[in-house]
Amino acid sequence: MKALALYLPAFHEIPENNQWWGDGFTEWDNVKSGKSYYQGHVQPVEPIQNDYYDLSHSADIVKQIKLAQSYSISGFIMYHYWFSQDKQLFTKPAKLLRNQIKEKIEYAFCWANESWITTWHGKDPNTLIEQTYGPASEWRSHIEYLHTFFEDERYIKINGHPLLFIYKPNNIPDYENMLDFWNTVLAKKGMESVYAVEFISSKNRTLFSQKTNAVVEFEPLYTTYFDLPLVKTAKRAFAKLTKQIDFQDYDILWRKILQRQRTYSGKPIFKSCFVSWDNSPRKEKNSMIVKGATAAKFQSYLSQLVSSDRPYTRDDYLIINAWNEWSEGAFLEPSKQYGYDYLQAVKNAL
């Protein structure tokens, strides 16, 4: 089984962020804004050796690839922000990987198909960019773009089919027709159809389409939405209503993951998990913090997940949230606070 880590490409400057949040803004600004809300709360987290990298530089991406490979991370699932044929964001890291970087690394995309709304730092909700889907001409532009990556021998194929995760398939008005259209275009180019994987979470609560090839449960938000008892669910709702921090227990969430037997009409399930979770740098007191995480626990639970025998789970890839979601507390990359412990946990577990 190979480990793939979700990968956030937002650690570089773009004009849109400069306009919305101020000149020079990158995701590191969110990370640095972290505050400690209780005794022992580790915030702000800091990359080891002050490595506030810039993903518009190929050398920084190469460094990440070499680090991942040295700790048994086989590849990245890169978030893909395609809002329309006229609007895409954070494309530079993927383009650098496709066009310039030669290092061997497996990768695939997750289309994060949702509108961007100003929910960070207690701001009133306002739409920054609306996610649109458009007619067939829009679909063609999108699949033509994706095809340039699918041609890369490093892009992950499942029995020859390019792997593509979709965050909210239920939001796509003509999802099945879009897939059919995409696959027709790919066939004319001599390529196999897309291997489409639905994210299952509170945003997409069950299998949306039989034309989807597989599913993956987005952790820990899947477990906190579906698997907590009624009392804890009520406490979560009260915390959100009163804008208090929603505290969850690391061990409880992981036990729910390991005990799960839910299936999805016989569709294959990618095993999935999370490193830890603390999105207070983004959401402040309207956040969720999972307490009790350690690298030793992560290694133990990950080992159990790898060897578990839940029905319909695939045995080729394991999905970890995440490589570098620093503002959500879900990161494998080395930090001043935890060193290389979580990376070593992955290597040991596998």
Results as ranks from 00 to 15, higher is better:
I257K: 12
P9S: 12
Q69M: 11
K271D: 09
A196Q: 01
K66W: 01
N18H: 06
A239N: 13
F298Q: 04
Q244N: 15
F165Y: 14
Q49G: 06
Y195I: 02
T118G: 02
F298C: 04
D246G: 02
Y53H: 03
E16V: 00
F25G: 03
Y264N: 08
K63Y: 08
E16W: 02
E138T: 15
R98H: 10
P311W: 05
W277M: 06
K188P: 00
K297A: 11
G292F: 09
W116C: 04
S137M: 07
T184V: 08
D315N: 14
I319M: 14
L55V: 07
V31M: 03
K283Y: 08
I166R: 12
I73E: 11
W21H: 03
D54G: 05
N113I: 08
P15V: 03
L228T: 02
D29N: 14
P44W: 05
T212D: 03
Y71S: 12
H41D: 10
V42C: 12
G34P: 06
P125E: 03
H121I: 02
Y52L: 09
A10G: 09
Y342E: 10
Q337R: 03
T242A: 11
I200R: 14
L55F: 10
E198D: 14
K189P: 03
A112M: 09
G22Q: 04
Q261L: 01
G75V: 12
K256C: 06
L207T: 10
E217K: 15
V197S: 09
W21E: 04
W182Q: 04
R314Y: 00
R154D: 02
Y250R: 08
K232E: 12
T184S: 15
A3F: 15
E219V: 01
K271E: 09
S307V: 06
M1I: 01
Y342D: 10
Y317V: 10
H57C: 07
K211S: 04
V215T: 09
Y342G: 10
Q248N: 09
S141Y: 14
Y167T: 02
P173K: 13
D51Q: 06
N30T: 13
T224V: 14
D174T: 11
K92F: 04
F76V: 09
V185W: 01
S209N: 13
H147Y: 15
L343R: 07
A5N: 02
K283D: 06
Y225L: 00
L96I: 07
Q259W: 01
F208S: 10
Y37M: 04
L253T: 04
L4N: 03
F83A: 07
P220I: 03
